[in-house]
Computed example of a mutant assay.
Amino acid sequence: MKSCQIGSGEKPNQEQIKRLEEITSQIPADDVLYGNADVIKAIADPTRLKILHLLKHGELCVCEIITVMEKPQPTVSHHLNILKKAGFLKWRKEGVWVHYSLSNPKIIDMLNELLENR
């Protein structure tokens, strides 16, 4: 297959165009990509990663998470909310307390697998 050089004025031939159309047809739609980027952004923070690692060991009350994180309640709640909106956490309310757990127990294993290949 002949390659084209940027700035050379050459245009892709029909074979190249067909190949590019096949490739681009397999790329998710922009709205899906933006949603995926938002999910990835949710874990792109050391505080949120630490929360995920904490919850790997099971459900914790928000008061326990605050104690371990040594951060103010509004800060921890903010991070928990981001993780919850991204689908990483599930929660339940018991009286005045909210308990959090991982929505998928394999999240940490998946993160570790992703990061070990860098």
Rank of each mutant, 00 (worst) to 15 (best):
V76Y: 13
E22I: 03
I66W: 07
T75D: 04
M110E: 14
I65A: 10
A29K: 13
V68A: 14
E21K: 12
Q26S: 15
V76S: 08
V32K: 12
W91M: 12
G7M: 03
S101A: 15
V76T: 11
G9S: 08
C63R: 13
K56I: 00
L49F: 00
L60V: 12
H99N: 11
N13F: 02
P105W: 01
D30E: 09
A44I: 02
Q73W: 08
S101H: 07
N13W: 01
V39Q: 10
I43M: 12
P28N: 12
L114T: 13
K50S: 11
A42H: 04
P72N: 14
V96I: 14
H99V: 14
A44D: 06
I23A: 12
D30F: 11
N104S: 15
L80H: 07
I51E: 08
I82R: 06
D30C: 08
L80D: 02
T24Y: 13
F88E: 04
Q5D: 05
G58V: 11
L33I: 12
L33R: 14
I51W: 09
M69W: 07
L114H: 15
Q26E: 13
K18A: 11
I27C: 10
L55D: 04
I27S: 08
E21P: 02
P46Y: 05
L111F: 05
I65S: 10
N112H: 08
K56V: 02
D30N: 08
D45W: 08
L115M: 11
K18M: 00
E15K: 05
G95Q: 10
L54Q: 08
I23P: 00
V98W: 10
I17Y: 02
Q14M: 00
E22F: 06
S101I: 10
A42M: 03
L20V: 00
I40P: 00
P46V: 12
Y100F: 14
A86T: 00
G7Q: 05
K93P: 05
L102I: 14
Q5I: 03
K41E: 08
A44L: 11
I40A: 10
L89I: 10
I66R: 15
I43Q: 06
G58F: 12
L52S: 07
S3L: 03
K50E: 13
G87D: 05
A29Q: 11
Y34M: 13
Q73N: 14
I108F: 05
S101R: 09
E70K: 14
P12Q: 01
Q73F: 11
W97M: 12
E116P: 01
E21N: 04
H99Y: 15
L115E: 08
Y100R: 09
K106F: 13
A44T: 03
V96L: 15
K90W: 04
K50C: 07
I82F: 01
K106N: 15
M1C: 00
V32L: 09
I17F: 01
I40W: 06
